[in-house]
């Protein structure tokens, strides 16, 4: 494996703002047009939780991805994004497609880096692929969670029935 401080990561770090913005824009464009504008424009994190969740977490994911450390966990940030997309109006494929969008952007925006560091670039793309697989796992967890919480809600709505059934005999 490669080590921290490679020229590729330094080069990408220099282009961070542009690349993360393009990644964000690409994701935001999957929403209807007026919403795309809203997600990009509204700065208040509580008024614009979708845009905020995307912006915050994409930046951290980008920083972690360009550092070729095996240990950097992407789970927390990725989960915040995937959990949101798992209940929005997307198919499963659409919901977890956003990592691939980064590959497309990198190849379009960083042509010099691609040819200068072919091996490191391939490593980076492999890490993005791994992130996509992790996104799919997290998507499935969110979907399974929906069924669990649905069951728990039904149980809470029958709380008294259950309680009287459990305790009824001992009180008679």
């Amino acid at each position: 494996m490669t080590h921290k401080g490679l020229p590729l990561s330094a080069s990408l770090a220099n282009q961070r703002e542009n690349l993360v913005r393009k990644w964000f824009d690409g994701i935001a464009q999957a929403y209807p047009e007026s919403t795309t504008r809203f997600l990009a424009r509204e700065k208040d994190p509580f008024q614009n939780p979708i845009g905020h969740t995307l912006k915050e977490n994409l930046s951290v994911l980008f920083d972690k991805l360009i550092q070729p450390k095996e240990t950097a966990s992407l789970t927390t940030e990725l989960n915040d994004i995937v959990r949101m997309r798992a209940v929005q109006d997307f198919s499963a494929g659409q919901a977890v497609s956003f990592p691939f969008l980064l590959k497309k952007i990198l190849r379009e925006e960083c042509t010099a880096d691609v040819s200068r560091y072919p091996e490191e670039f391939a490593d980076l793309e492999a890490r993005i692929d791994e992130m996509a697989l992790l996104a799919f796992d997290l998507f499935m967890k969110s979907r399974e969670r929906l069924y669990e919480i649905k069951y728990n809600e039904a149980k809470r709505s029958m709380f008294m029935l259950e309680k009287t059934r459990q305790n009824g005999n001992s009180r008679q």
Binding site: P32, T35, F38, L39, E42, N48, P49, I50, Q88, D89
Partner: peptide, 11 residues
Amino acid sequence: DKCHFYVGSGD
């Protein structure tokens, strides 16, 4: 942009 359904769904 004040409706929670719009803010949360983007529809």
